[in-house]
Write a protein that binds this DNA or RNA. Structure first.
Lengths: 201, 201
DNA sequence: TATAGTTCCGGAAAGAGATTCCGCTTCACT
DNA sequence: AGTGAAGCGGAATCTCTTTCCGGAACTATA
């Protein structure tokens, strides 16, 4: 009676490890959903996703009871990937270039993932917290790039990472009739501005 | 054989007048849709709308074969209302105040109508042209207010109506975790800046 | 490795809502 | 008033979502 059936040190919160097939299915679903969302939009039939993932519908609903759960998971995964790209860039390039490259990558993400801006602006309470997640994950990543670039005297210290993040998010959520790379151009301009140390008095 | 069956002067393009009951139903549907969209979101069941409008589902689909047609029509109607408000404001207030009031009204529209930002950012080609419609209708309305205010020396002539329009549209499409009146505040700030003639050298 | 106890899976079935279709009504014009 | 077109309602149909449960697969233990 007094024995912990799992033997785990973490206690009541982790009664058992997640089954490996379950994790594999979740990954397959997220991959499939990312692809299908890109092809047919976020309102694509569930069957299209489950077929591509090679699982039954039941499995989809087990892991993502609401469609918004699936959308959120896909987006959060992309945000993570974006954050993870920062250290590699920082290692490969001088600070100013690393920052520019990373912002380009962020802009590309926001521009191409229409579903992202749509979810962010949908007003659906299911997506509350998404922009919080964005700040939380990307804020530090951007912050360290920014600090490094500032310390190396490659940019002017005039913006916070939050300022930049929101600026990119808002500028890159394009209006339909805008030229397609309006957002990217504006961000590039912004970065050029930041890096224009030598033209300053 | 050679007779025009309608007797209309406009020729082939207007074979017959639109039936008054049809027009009445369209109006009822738009009113109902506006209300229901506000209450239950743009994905509300069609029945909810037709019931409120007091018509059958068939009637909805006759006039708006796609849901996006209905959404577009509702939004365009609000845009029209916004544009129509300009002359009245211009008649009642001095130019600078009229401009400020109108921008407040525009901001309120963008902020409250979540569906607007969502449609604009959805990426669905069905909504292409919406932002064009916005520019086309609101551009001149804002332009005349702006010209009047500039002529009366109540604001500085530093922005185009398109600049202002896009600025409002983008600033007021709020991220979920932002304070709710972030957009309104930013627009107010913008207007204050425009009107700060006396503090300029 | 064999066993017991869970967790997870697939896909049929039920439910919910969207969309079509057509006989009947209402309107505009003469 | 008569006539033909336009429009209407809502039952029927179709599509997609969501639930449900018998059985398969996995993990922990001996």
């Amino acid at each position: 009676m007094s024995n912990d059936t799992t033997g785990s040190r973490t206690g009541a919160s982790a009664p058992r490890r997640i089954r490996t097939d379950a994790r594999r299915n979740v990954e397959a679903l997220l991959d499939a959903a990312k692809t299908v969302f890109g092809t047919s939009g976020v309102d694509a039939p569930a069957k299209e996703i489950t077929d591509l993932a090679g699982v039954g519908v039941g499995t989809l609903y087990r892991h993502f009871p609401q469609r918004s759960d699936l959308i959120k998971a896909v987006i959060e995964r992309e945000i993570d990937a974006c954050a993870d790209a920062a250290p590699a860039l920082a290692a490969e390039h001088p600070p100013g270039i690393a920052l520019a490259r990373w912002l380009e990558r962020l802009a590309a993400f926001v521009v191409t993932k229409r579903g992202f801006a749509a979810a962010l602006h949908s007003g659906d309470p299911a997506f509350d917290g998404l922009s919080g997640y964005l700040m939380e994950k990307l804020g530090p990543a951007l912050g360290s790039l920014l600090d490094a670039a500032t310390a190396a005297d490659e940019i002017r210290a005039v913006v916070s990472s939050q300022d930049l993040l929101y600026a990119v998010a808002k500028l890159c959520a394009p209006l339909p009739d805008e030229e397609p790379d309006y957002g990217r151009r504006m961000v590039a301009l912004l970065v050029d501005g930041l890096r224009s140390i030598d033209t300053q008095r």
